[in-house]
């Protein structure tokens, strides 16, 4: 086996996993605290990517685009929460699924109206467009490394915010008993808006970081959203720690599986079968993992209620 390729694919998997974590963290926070299933979370990811494309074109700098995109997606999230989602908190999950499904349709059309049906591409920022030699023979694009570092920083920030600050204390309290938090005089509606905006900003961050290495297009958030669902189902809904662990797990298995499964299957069966089966099996692997984990732990690896 080729070690350099393995390390490279592991880094790719880490990067995918961390991006998924940024999405899943917002989803799991919103679910844990507001008890809201938000299908439109992927739309915020898409909106983040489109904002990044526009702001990069306006300012000519990816860094300025980052600085502008984060508050912009936070604002979009807050507006969506106030206008639409606020009235859904006390509804059952089916209502929430339907209404946020409607939001997806709305956002896709809105983006098509504003930015047009064609996909956009965002140029790599100048200072990150080179590659680094991490070890002899191991050359890795510096932009992808930057994604890993930035996502880790965001994850640490989230940890600090939730575990060490007053607002984080309220978030944790809200997750375990929101009626009681409200009864103690905390402005729970404002807290919800903040949390939703925070989740939106994290999704926007994931979208803007993914923008230069993928095409910015309508519907880009929907496939990622399903992966994020798998992540939080495996991790245990409402648990940020669970989301982190399972996001890395999913990212690694998906990436490494796609890279090496054809070789592994080719070792056992003839080539024709391996060529036909490997891509199909590789794309199924994370769902099979989910099925296995849920068969043993229906509540996910880390349940929010006990850890």
């Amino acid at each position: 086996m080729n070690w350099i390729l393995l390390i490279e694919q592991t880094l790719n998997g880490l990067q995918l996993g961390l991006l998924l974590f940024l999405l899943a963290a917002g989803l799991t926070l919103v679910f844990g605290i507001m008890d809201l299933v938000n299908l439109a979370h992927g739309s915020l990811y898409m909106v983040g990517a489109y904002f990044a494309a526009t702001f990069t074109a306006w300012t000519g700098s990816f860094v300025y685009a980052v600085v502008l995109t984060l508050p912009a997606t936070l604002l979009v999230g807050a507006v969506v929460e106030i206008v639409c989602l606020r009235s859904l908190y006390d509804r059952d999950h089916l209502d929430q699924v339907l209404a946020t499904f409607g939001l997806i349709l709305f956002f896709n059309e809105l983006v098509r109206l504003v930015w047009g049906p064609a996909g956009l591409s965002v140029p790599l920022p100048e200072f990150l467009s080179s590659s680094l030699e991490l070890a002899p023979g191991l050359i890795y694009p510096s932009y992808r490394l930057a994604i890993i570092i930035a996502s880790l920083l965001a994850a640490f920030f989230l940890y600090w915010l939730v575990a060490r600050t007053r607002i984080g204390m309220l978030i944790r309290a809200g997750a375990s008993n929101r009626e009681m938090v409200g009864a103690l005089g905390v402005n729970i509606r404002f807290l919800f808006t903040i949390v939703f905006g925070l989740g939106a900003a994290l999704a926007g961050l994931a979208g803007l970081m993914a923008a230069p290495i993928s095409t910015v297009e309508i519907g880009m958030g929907e496939n990622v959203l399903i992966l994020a669902f798998v992540v939080i189902v495996i991790g245990g809904i409402g648990s940020i720690r669970g989301a982190f662990v399972s996001a890395l797990l999913i990212g690694l298995i998906d990436t490494v599986g796609r890279a090496f499964l054809p070789d592994v299957i080719g070792g056992f069966f003839d080539d024709e079968f391996a060529d036909a089966a490997a891509p199909a099996l590789a794309s199924m692997s994370i769902y099979l993992l989910m099925a296995v984990i849920l068969a043993f732990r229906p509540e996910g690896l880390f349940s929010a209620r006990n850890g």
């Binding site: 891509p279 099996l281 989910m290």
Partner: peptide, 24 residues
């Protein structure tokens, strides 16, 4: 084996699994 939101997301994920299976 699961309830509520888990059920929604798992049925969703399994259908995506079959979707990718046929794409493959």
């Amino acid at each position: 084996r699961t309830r509520g939101v888990y059920f929604i997301m798992i049925t969703l994920a399994f259908s995506q699994m079959l979707y990718y299976f046929f794409i493959g």
